[in-house]
């Protein structure tokens, strides 16, 4: 261990916060009955990979960086860090590769300049950050002011405490594959329903044939899409029922909204389809201006894709950390 391993109060100081950087983990699961959405990383695969690179459990809280990243200065100790994502990373002004665990010494500056492809990158520190869990998770839900650092995105001057100063030395130099969900260029797969029947056959067909553009109204709560109007035959009010991450609601203007992790837990617009689990991480890497199509699959196929992908990914993480 380094000399500073036992130093209390080691932290990353935020010199610049980036566009929208929040602490996210695997999310606040199973709290929907309280109206509390899961939040958590939009791309859980990249989160798990960043964590694995510094020896953390896959769902440990890490910084979710949106398009333009933060500048962080190591204070009061040393620590291993890693960035997963297609990010331009500078270590003391030298370009370093993402997907690689590196050692930050006291006074070192780490900058994630931008995310080159996709929307997000994840920065993990060995041992994780100091943050108080709320309902079992440190994930930031800024709208409700919960989780993360003071319930909000990073701001200049924040001191992000490290839970295990000096941690992760054994992981330094560990290199992962350039695992980028956004490289998979194919339709976003959905299962129709639960209210597809509110839309005429023609509207349902158009939902699948159209190319949709993610509008500038796209954030952690939801992505509004623009394309042909899909007004619902049964009107755009239903008696509110549950929303999941990936529920595709269609409000009265006929422009779909895909619910994301900071979504409401319920909604009152008919849902034409629901995105399958295996495609959620890829969806989480999309940004305003990106185009997408939808493709229908059945439930059994979706389950096969999810189990297969998770098993393969877990096996990869085990090899990486083994």
């Amino acid at each position: 261990m380094s000399e500073t391993a036992m130093t209390a109060g080691a932290s990353l100081q935020v010199d610049a916060p980036g566009m929208m950087t929040t602490l996210q983990d695997g999310g606040r699961q199973g709290q929907g009955h309280l109206g509390v959405p899961p939040s958590g990383a939009l791309d859980t695969m990249s989160l798990a990979l960043a964590n694995a690179l510094v020896g953390n459990a896959p769902d440990t809280g890490a910084l979710e960086i949106t398009l333009l990243g933060p500048t962080l200065v190591m204070k009061g100790g040393d620590c291993a860090v890693a960035v997963a994502g297609d990010a331009e990373v500078l270590h003391n002004d030298c370009r370093v590769a993402p997907f690689c665990s590196l050692w930050l010494r006291e006074g070192d500056v780490l900058t994630v300049r931008r995310v080159a492809s996709g929307a997000r990158a994840y920065l993990a520190v060995a041992g994780g950050f100091v943050a108080a869990p709320f309902l079992g998770s440190v994930a930031t839900l800024a709208r409700a002011g919960i989780g993360g650092f003071a319930g909000r995105p990073l701001a200049a001057g924040d001191q992000l405490g490290l839970a295990t100063p000096g941690g992760g030395e054994a992981s330094v130099g560990r290199r992962g594959e350039q695992h980028l969900p956004q490289r998979e260029k194919r339709a976003i797969r959905v299962v129709p329903g639960p209210q597809a029947g509110h839309f005429s056959r023609a509207k349902q067909a158009r939902f699948f044939s159209a190319e949709w553009t993610i509008s500038t109204l796209a954030d952690r709560m939801g992505y509004r899409l623009t394309g042909p109007a899909l007004a619902s035959a049964g009107g755009h009010n239903i008696v509110s029922d549950a929303l999941l991450t990936g529920s595709v609601q269609v409000p009265g203007d006929g422009q779909p909204i895909i619910a994301m992790n900071d979504r409401g837990t319920t909604g009152g617009y008919p849902k034409i389809a629901t995105v399958i689990r295996a495609d959620l991480a890829r969806l989480g890497q999309m940004k305003p201006g990106d185009r997408l199509r939808f493709e229908a699959v059945d439930v059994a196929h979706a389950e096969t894709l999810w189990r297969g992908r998770q098993e393969a990914f877990q096996a990869y993480l085990d090899r990486l950390t083994g």
Binding site: P192, G193, P194, G197, R201, T274, A302
Partner: peptide
Amino acid sequence: LNASIGDVAQNTPPGPDTPAFTIVPLADQG
């Protein structure tokens, strides 16, 4: 796609206290 475009349902007849309900997929999430 058979019945999967539209609102698929397993219909359950109501019991004494139980209203008629259907169970529909929310993809492979729920």
